[in-house]
């Protein structure tokens, strides 16, 4: 068990280094000169060259990468080209907001998705199952930015019940929660659909196995059989939970933009349009790190549920 934990931890290091290389390369391979976004239009060629040197853009890419990596490891993600504020501070603030949103959307979608999926599996082939499957397909198919816009039109514009934009720091907890409501729903739709489908199929796989018949053959009731099925399906479901949480944390560019929610997605969107490379790199790197750690946590949790995993 502990050997397995150690091995997984060691494996996370090359994964993180790989992620950092990709993040660095991706941003540098993208067309467009970051200088053009910050320098005044009438800046002389010499001024631009001087600025490039100041930011280190004149060095070869590998050198830029290593300098960047050394600073990153020390917690220095550089300064934003657009705002000149430390990237770490911006990313930290944005991450807090995204984390809140991702957590609430996860709570909503995981709870309902797991419930619906299990319900569908235990009622396989009946009306309820078909209804759940329909809900799931709608969930995964509806583009969430579109759902966001519809939510705004309906709840903010027509009914005027909930605010459409921003994360209110003033006005206390109630106001903050009111601002969270719509983006949470919009963000929860896709994972809700994915989870319903995954949980249903995982539970059906287990239900088809002979040991379920054996459990019934020894006289166990529905609740006891249900507990066995859930424990057996848990490792597979956990994997998806981890991935979906990661997606919600970083993949909410569209939702956060639609609702002007000051999270990582919103920050990334801003950084892309302003060609703010340090910010973009910082956000992606932090999110990638979160993703790797999240998957590590999921892997370790699985060994607690399924005694067979640590053996492989």
């Amino acid at each position: 068990m502990w050997a397995y934990v150690g091995r997984r931890l060691l494996l996370a290091i090359p994964t993180l280094v790989g992620a950092s290389i990709i993040v660095f390369a991706m941003v540098h391979l993208a067309p467009g000169d970051p200088m053009s976004a910050v320098m005044p239009v009438d800046a002389s060629q010499a001024d631009i060259e001087a600025a490039r040197r100041a930011y280190g853009f004149d060095q070869p890419l590998p050198v830029q990468y290593f300098r960047w990596l050394v600073r990153v490891v020390q917690g220095d993600l550089g300064k934003s080209i657009a705002t000149r504020r430390p990237v770490l501070q911006d990313v930290y603030d944005a991450l807090k907001n995204s984390l809140v949103l991702a957590l609430s959307a996860s709570l909503l979608s995981f709870g309902i998705g797991i419930g619906l999926g299990l319900l569908a599996a235990f009622r396989q082939g009946r009306v309820l199952d078909k209804l759940m499957s329909a809900v799931a397909i709608v969930g995964v198919s509806v583009p969430h930015y579109w759902a966001g816009i519809i939510l705004i039109i309906f709840f903010s514009v027509q009914l005027n019940w909930l605010p459409a934009m921003g994360a209110s720091a003033e006005g206390g907890a109630v106001e903050y929660l009111r601002h969270m409501a719509l983006p949470t729903i919009a963000l929860a739709l896709i994972p809700l659909g994915v989870l319903t489908r995954v949980v249903r199929s995982a539970a059906l796989d287990i239900l088809a196995q002979e040991f379920v018949l054996a459990l019934r053959a020894k006289g166990l009731g529905r609740a006891a059989v249900f507990a066995h099925v859930v424990k057996n399906a848990a490792p597979q479901i956990l994997t998806v939970l981890g991935l979906q949480f990661g997606f919600q944390l970083g993949g909410s560019v569209l939702v956060e933009t639609v609702f002007s929610w000051p999270g990582t997605g919103y920050l990334m969107n801003l950084a892309i349009f302003q060609r703010d490379l340090p910010v973009l790199q910082g956000v992606i790197l932090v999110l990638a790190t979160f993703f790797v750690l999240l998957n590590l946590a999921v892997d370790l949790m699985q060994t607690l549920v399924d005694p067979r995993i640590a053996r492989h």
Binding site: E210, F211, A214, R216, A217, K218, G219, K231, D306, P307
Partner: peptide, 24 residues
């Protein structure tokens, strides 16, 4: 029926590896 299963009559399966719950 549940009260009978395992109490009055029990079933032993052909393949114990598939008939036992792997995570218990």
């Amino acid at each position: 029926r549940r009260a009978i299963r395992g109490r009055v009559a029990s079933l032993v399966f052909q393949e114990p590896i598939t008939a036992l719950d792997p995570v218990y």
